[in-house]
Amino acid sequence: MMQLAIQEPYMLTIQPDDFFISPRRLDENFGTMICFHRRYDLGDEHNYGDNEDFLKDLYLKTVGNDEKGEEKYDRLLDRLSKQPDTPFGSREYACAVNQALMAEIEKEHIVLPLYLYDHSALAMSTDSFIGRAVHAEWDSGQVGWIYVSKEDIRAEYQVDRITPSVREQAENRLKDEVRIYDAYLRGECYGYELYKNGELTDSCWGFVGSFDEAIKDIAEYLPDECKGMTEKLAEVSDPASMVKTLLKHARIQVEQAAKDMERKPREQVLGVEL
């Protein structure tokens, strides 16, 4: 989809940014996004083999990554495997282990689940897609986690204690990072090119979010004489008409350049003294 607006002598085009780099690679993020999927490379780079490896590592970082921490971890698994309602190897056992580990992890971290919806396109959220997306029962599920340590939160907000207000701010930042990544997965990345008399004078790429959000951000980048152009945008569905418009503006530029050349003294055109 390409959008175009003309406000002589300017022409503005807005189009998808097909070469936008993942915001998890490009930006310095507040949280860490760990995902596991057999087909897609999602989230941040990591060396965890599976979800169990990740939760164990975060658990040990919480209770102590040493021999005592390992012993505590082993005792927890052993205790849960011996309970009649969570026999080792069962689904109930895996859920119980995750809950027990998370109860400890959340003492020193804020952790939010990540859900992926895979149906003709990808989407990600911290909330389940069940009940709010078609075929979500089959095409969605938890794919990982996004988290930040409370130590990093205290350093970021320069506080000694994490109050409910600070916690809410931290959670919202994690959710914003997921929202941006979701837009990236959906292909909601845009850029603009600004022409004056057929000549490209400005361009910028990497606006991520809904189209309306991108338009709002792009409007702030445009020079003062182009204010209001984003309100005149119209979709260009015919590539031929787009080319025709570009050629028209290019022709204007060429004609103007030719007139400028004619006005110059002949010796300046030739670059020699007569």
Rank of each mutant, 00 (worst) to 15 (best):
Q3C: 09
A5V: 12
A5K: 06
A5Q: 09
Q7E: 06
Q7G: 03
P9M: 04
Y10F: 15
Q15F: 04
Q15Y: 02
D17Y: 05
F19W: 07
F19A: 14
D27F: 01
G31Y: 02
R38H: 13
Y40D: 13
N47Y: 09
N47V: 07
Y48Q: 12
E52F: 12
D53W: 07
F54P: 06
L58E: 09
Y59A: 15
L60N: 06
D66G: 15
E67G: 13
E70H: 04
R75T: 03
L76N: 04
K82Y: 00
D85T: 13
T86K: 15
G89A: 11
C95T: 14
L101D: 02
M102Y: 10
A103M: 11
K107R: 10
H109K: 13
P113E: 07
H119E: 01
A121T: 15
A121P: 00
S125H: 06
I130M: 10
G131F: 05
A133Q: 12
H135F: 13
H135Y: 11
A136C: 10
E137I: 08
G144I: 06
V148C: 04
V148S: 04
K150N: 11
E151R: 07
E151I: 02
D152E: 12
A155G: 03
Y157K: 01
I162L: 04
S165T: 15
R167E: 15
E168I: 11
R173K: 12
V178M: 12
D182C: 13
Y192P: 06
L194H: 03
K196H: 08
E199I: 09
T201G: 02
W205M: 05
F207Q: 01
F211E: 14
D212N: 02
A219H: 08
Y221R: 00
L222A: 04
P223D: 11
D224R: 05
C226G: 02
T230K: 03
A234F: 08
D238L: 07
V243T: 12
K244G: 02
H249I: 02
V254C: 13
R266W: 14
L270T: 06
